[in-house]
Design a protein around this nucleic acid. Structure first.
Lengths: 205, 205
DNA sequence: CGCGACGTTGATTTGCCTCAACGATTGTGG
DNA sequence: CCACAATCGTTGAGGCAAATCAACGTCGCG
């Protein structure tokens, strides 16, 4: 059987491990996962979802990094989420509400995902109700993180948010340009540059 | 049998109707709901959750209005969520993560809720896995709304956020003081006052 | 090589905050 | 039931955080 480079048969393993850590799976359930999730490569700058389209897939990142963002009327980019290794990403509003998305998802690096379509996910829920629980827990965790971020955005200064980002996502910082980080924090790249230099100063008199 | 005023036996009905609208329940499942959820009254200004405590209950509001908020180091209040009739509220991070909460929940009006403890909810999941799905859908919907709010906060001015609040929560506006609305929008009450007057002006020369 | 993204820095502007004062309303205890 | 305190909404003056606009050197890439 022909196998594409970068997409070996055992690419499903990290996902199985991920699920197993949340709630242990039996063999039948692991086979269902293997049957419904499919590997896919996105080249750098390639769209995984484009504004106006329906979000039909749920992505689990194996390697690389995706971002989900909105472009406002003034043309500014606002990043809702990065998704690197072992993170999930999709536009849940479009995915379940069956409405056209206002968001874009694209690749910041060459990225390999495991994807499942909405129809396959619904089938999976029917075949193994345990996945209702798994995805409930998964969304609950995302909800808590999102709520913490909202709280930060309401109550903190740009500098505090930047410091917090460095702490929470240290492994991302080196992989992202300052433009991306600024679009995530909700500030301009110019101001982020000033923040960085403001701190490394206070050295020479 | 003695029955407290304001808390009649059929107070469970709005919750059953709420679940039924999401995913139809059979008789046994309705009885489980009636067995695990309990009515409770919070007087105006009474805490339902206090910072430092564990969030042990999930609340469904029958009448009245609760708010969930954080007090920062400077003493400012930041409101994460209002919950009026037919809304859910709790600190999910504390509820499932079993950690002390940094948030407060209290009543803005005399409020009647149906509450379920974490232990009872877990029991409910085991007795009827359908509730895994129900609460998955419920959290998914909350997640989508929260994401929209974060996007607004990152990308919009205070005035745009205020206009949007008026559109999305018209039934709340009349019940809340401007102090509460300002704490939700992430601005000062003074500035909210200016926003309101800025708009009703542009009339007399 | 040349073009376009990136990061930096300066000058200026602006959205929103802070502090302070005031009358109107609410609520509370004597 | 009244008196007093507390909270609310409003307005003014002044200040600061962050945006805007512009210019410039650097680097990676086609």
């Amino acid at each position: 059987m022909y196998m594409r480079k970068n997409l070996p048969t055992d690419s499903i393993d990290p996902l199985l491990a991920y699920f197993d850590r949340l709630i242990p799976l039996d063999t039948a359930e692991k086979e269902l996962v293997a049957a419904h999730f499919h590997p896919r490569l996105f080249r750098k700058r390639q769209y995984a979802l484009q504004e106006g389209d329906l979000c039909n897939q749920f992505y689990f990142v194996l390697r690389g990094c995706l971002r989900m963002y909105k472009i406002d009327d003034k043309g500014s980019t606002h990043i809702l989420q990065f998704a690197a290794e072992n993170y999930w990403i999709n536009d849940l509003g479009s995915f379940h509400g069956l409405r056209a998305s206002e968001l874009n998802i694209d690749a910041l690096e060459d990225t390999v995902v495991l994807q499942i379509s909405r129809d396959d996910l619904i089938t999976l829920y029917l075949q193994a109700p345990k996945f209702d629980r798994i995805f409930r827990v998964l969304v609950e965790n995302s909800f808590v993180r999102l709520q913490e971020r909202l709280l930060q955005n309401i109550s903190s200064t740009a500098e505090e948010r930047y410091r917090s980002f460095l702490e929470v996502y240290p492994y991302l910082v080196s992989r992202l340009s300052q433009v991306q980080i600024a679009a995530y924090l909700g500030i301009t790249p110019e101001f982020l540059s000033r923040l960085r230099n403001r701190r490394t100063q206070t050295r020479k008199p």
